[in-house]
Design a protein around this nucleic acid. Structure first.
Lengths: 202, 202, 202, 202
DNA sequence: TATGAATGAGCGTTCATTCAT
DNA sequence: TATGAATGAACGCTCATTCAT
């Protein structure tokens, strides 16, 4: 995601991939068949390894999905914070860049995002709680931006909470239908969704 | 859903339940744990029956989820057609009632809708193809309404297909967060979403 | 072991078998290969069942060996108490009957006794503690008898504790070499061991 | 066991250890968990080596236990022969020293002796046959001594074979309960057991 | 010599499903 | 109609062992 771990990564740059080949293939299989519908033999075959080879890298099937979901959570959080920082204090700019960030992420990281929302239920209780908290914090960012815009007098919004949910599910929905083979680029989609967000707040 | 099977049901009336008690409890379990994460023992226990008792009513675990997904598909289709009929020829009215219909369905039939979108992958190939086609047809209704509004000159829309997907995922997203214990009624939500749709088409 | 559960069983009567056929065959296999060297497939094959058939009767391989070891412990305890009751207050009679009881048990219940001593280490911690306590209580019976004989002035014994261990291991050793195909009956062996015990206490 | 390999070792001297550190730690682990309950990882960890390091010294887990059991068998045989040689022709002296030898060995070589008796079943068939033959030869030594004493008219024994088994299991039993932390030294125990043997043969 | 990484085979256990009763 | 008992197949995982380095 960036040249060095220390330098702040560009939240618009998706040229890298935060997942190792094993986690990448596991993500695809988990998305296609679900956590419980995926066997360790499938995961091994998809990664071109033997089953014990899998266990050499991860302690369990659960550890695999936890690693994937951690990666998803961390990447989205860091990108969102990057967008917020770039936006400065203006709520309008914050909304634009936040929506751009969500749209880019859910298009570029289609499978990762799908998995993160679908398989929360397959996590062990402790991990599940952790990820639910992270998801809630992520969703609060958008509520806060909307509320800030209302306070600043730049947004016309009835119920910030409700609109935040509409905008959020609209954006996460991208990963349900986006295909890199389609006519739209992630940037195209982001531009449209920014326009939607502006209409819904004015 | 209606007093008799023949009379046209009211698409706003959710007082009935299209699912038998067995299918209703199965839906809850499938939503909570996923198709592959649910065992027939869980389904039997949730329904208060023995495992062979389950097989008396349904030929297999697969037949159970197919029945549930068929019910979801049929109910949404019939309600959508009911809304369209009531709306008449005006694209603006069609959009309002279609969005109202989607919002009401995804709030009132929260679990059914969640299952229908999440567990498509768990269906046997033939059934999956059938339901994917039905889902696509369902989504096309909204595209057609938007296009009709553009053609009638009452909507200002750049890309009808893209906006349809945004409106659709926004609406289906309701079933991801709606709770009957929350402050909003399904009708409240529908009203908000109609307003969102209007803003996005003007 | 007795006609009815309530009537006190005869501690010399080994015509019955406290183990079900499944537990009996499992005992043989565990003795022959050890707990960890025995697979559930072996146990199922030895019992003429399928593997899930095994799990229909017992929750786990561990539950099987626990049931066997419980049966061994309970049977030896009840027989020992029966012998003690029959002996009355005389320490000489108590020693005779206790040794007879140990000899008969370790000959008649050869495999059960072997298993109970060898596989203590294979029990889960809680069960292990329970059985170690029971074994210690069993061994204390002999120490107490010897001490009583010393107190009554009928035994000439240097160190009751040490002699008790010698007599006990000598007796449990029977199950290491006894074979029903050999020339000696359990009663023959018991008679000899009573004589040994008398010599060692006079 | 002795300063040089050629000089006859003192059968009462247990200051040395016939086992290499690796075999010693393996013996402890095998005793604690059984052959099949012990993994090569446990063996390596107990010896402070890596698993392949283990295989550098021994071709297999089986080779390890065979080496241990060979050492046990050889040591007991050599010590027994040493005791017999020292005893000369008198059956009474032979019995005393043989019992002393057994007692010392089963106290000093507690774990080795336990392993040798418990894990015969875990040996490959060829090795098992070999060790069973060695064990039988070892046991015959005691039978022969008793018979010699009867023939010489110095022992009063009904059934030499049976008494030999009682004396043998009594002695091997020492390794089941002896602890160096306890109040008795191996020499104490040996003295007691010699006294027991005398009582049982007079 | 020593080891991190790998694997075929098999472990204890559970699955969806069936059938005698 | 309902179920206690059963099972072939497959589950997640670990085993003893190997080999490139």
């Amino acid at each position: 995601m960036s040249a060095t771990e220390d330098s702040p990564p560009d939240w618009r740059d998706f040229s890298g991939d935060p997942l190792s080949p094993l986690l990448r293939s596991a993500t695809q299989t988990f998305v296609a068949r679900g956590y419980h519908g995926t066997t360790t033999r499938m995961l091994a075959a998809a990664a071109g390894m033997s089953v014990p080879g899998l266990y050499h890298h991860f302690a369990s099937k659960q550890a695999l999905i936890v690693a994937i979901m951690d990666a998803a959570m961390i990447e989205l959080r860091e990108r969102s914070l990057g967008a917020l920082t770039e936006a400065g204090d203006d709520a309008g700019a914050q909304l634009d860049l936040h929506i751009e960030c969500l749209a880019l992420f859910h298009a570029h990281r289609r499978e990762l995002a799908l998995l993160a929302s679908t398989e929360l239920r397959s996590l062990d209780p402790t991990e599940r709680d952790h990820h639910i908290a992270a998801r809630d914090a992520q969703e609060r960012m958008l509520v806060d931006i909307l509320q800030r815009g209302v306070d600043q007098g730049v947004f016309t919004v009835d119920d910030a909470r409700q609109l935040a949910r509409a905008l959020a599910t609209m954006s996460t929905g991208i990963s349900q239908w986006y295909s890199p083979a389609g006519p739209l680029t992630p940037a195209d989609i982001a531009a449209s969704y920014i326009a939607y967000a502006r209409r819904l707040t004015s």
